[in-house]
Design a protein around this nucleic acid. Structure first.
Lengths: 226, 226
DNA sequence: TTAACAATAATTGTTAACAAGAAATGTTAA
DNA sequence: TTAACATTTCTTGTTAACAATTATTGTTAA
């Protein structure tokens, strides 16, 4: 059995968003995608509908599909939802985590740190998301896992739209603390650190400055006229 | 601007599931729906894809669309997710609730109680779901609201599949307690009652007895051969 | 009667052509 | 040069016909 082309498209778009190669607002034309993936438009439309259901793509009637552009309000809601969900995930994870899991998580953090030093932002972002999603898998609750998958994706979009100070180091540090709490099976500490970690992320956002001027071709071709 | 037929279909199916007129496992044929709603198959397929994204419909390749049949494991996951989400919703609600909201909620409970006495199960189910969704709206968090909409829908399917004792009265009583806690702005009590309410619902399920034999025509035509 | 097989019918999946709408381009007049 | 308008081009939305798969029915042989 071969892979459905629509899933290929969905995964490709999600990966691109995960690594911030696709900025918020980018138009996803049907013909463009159908040529890129050698498939007909029906598959493209299914893929776009699926991405829209995940709130990662916005479908404007007669206008086309665009990478979602979360507002400041949505950003707050996303992070509040993450706190609600990751709290429960953490409680489940601390009860189910094995030594192998902890080894994996530490390796993940090491790779993330290394990516940060290499200034490889895409890899760093992907690994950070992977960290959260691994805990979600660990929880054994696929409903929460699916919800969090959507929320981390939207979080990446939000981080791309409202980039405050680059607090990537703080991110790794937080993750280390979380794994330490997991290792100690200290639930109370884990819950506190998880909540604080998400608040750090949210606090680092800057909603004021950039209305994120159109990322049109002009800027990409001529560079920013400082 | 007229209404998109696909949204009509989605709403109709969701309403039917809300009132348990559509049992889990029911086949949703494309032609059947396209004739019912006087539209072409493209609209039907979009609607079914949308319902599948909400986890309310299962799409089996080359086989068609069926109302989802949540397993016992999924049921547990759904209720755990609800506890996570409704906890945060309750915290937001208690901070934002107005007297008008409380009046609405009490009227809703009254109607629910009356429906129970009338033995009007569909209305009772719909109103119970409405109660939870009103609190979700009150929270002001549309992400959580959307998640809960999916979860309440799946909960109704679950209640239909694994019906334990009819604890509808307990349901109303729980709701009364929740509104009382809201009225008193007693957050701690509210959180406790909300959590307990969801645990009551889950505890009332009976996973053992009915593998829910095919709800095929036979039973509907001949009745159960006691 | 039952089981296996064959033929038929019905349903889903795919494709391409056409219609409708929006964006881009080009033109004209102030 | 700019602004408004008309034309063209491109993109999305819709429809219907066809292909492929599955389910059903009918038949035959044990």
């Amino acid at each position: 059995m071969d892979v459905q082309p629509e899933n290929l498209i969905v995964d490709a778009v999600l990966n691109a968003i995960s690594e911030q190669r696709l900025p918020a607002g980018t138009k996803l034309g049907e013909q463009t995608l159908s040529e890129l993936f050698n498939c007909n438009r029906a598959n493209v439309r299914r893929a776009l509908a699926s991405l829209a259901a995940k709130q990662v793509v916005e479908l404007r009637p007669n206008r086309g599909a665009f990478v979602a552009t979360p507002s400041a309000q949505e950003a707050r809601e996303v992070f509040q939802a993450r706190r609600a969900i990751e709290r429960t995930i953490a409680r489940q994870a601390v009860a189910r985590v094995t030594d192998d899991d902890i080894a994996y998580l530490r390796a993940n953090i090491a790779a993330e740190t290394e990516a940060r030093i290499r200034k490889d932002k895409p890899t760093e972002l992907r690994l950070s998301q992977q960290f959260h999603m691994y805990l979600a898998q660990l929880s054994g609750n696929r409903v929460l896992e699916r919800f969090l998958a959507e929320l981390t994706m939207r979080s990446t979009l939000i981080l791309g739209m409202y980039p405050g100070e680059g607090h990537s180091c703080a991110n790794c540090d937080d993750h280390v603390g979380i794994v330490d709490a997991l290792t100690a099976r200290d639930e109370e500490l884990l819950l506190r650190l998880t909540d604080e970690h998400l608040r750090h992320l949210e606090a680092g956002l800057d909603f004021d400055l950039p209305p994120v001027s159109s990322v049109s071709l002009k800027d990409q071709l001529l560079g920013s006229p400082a």
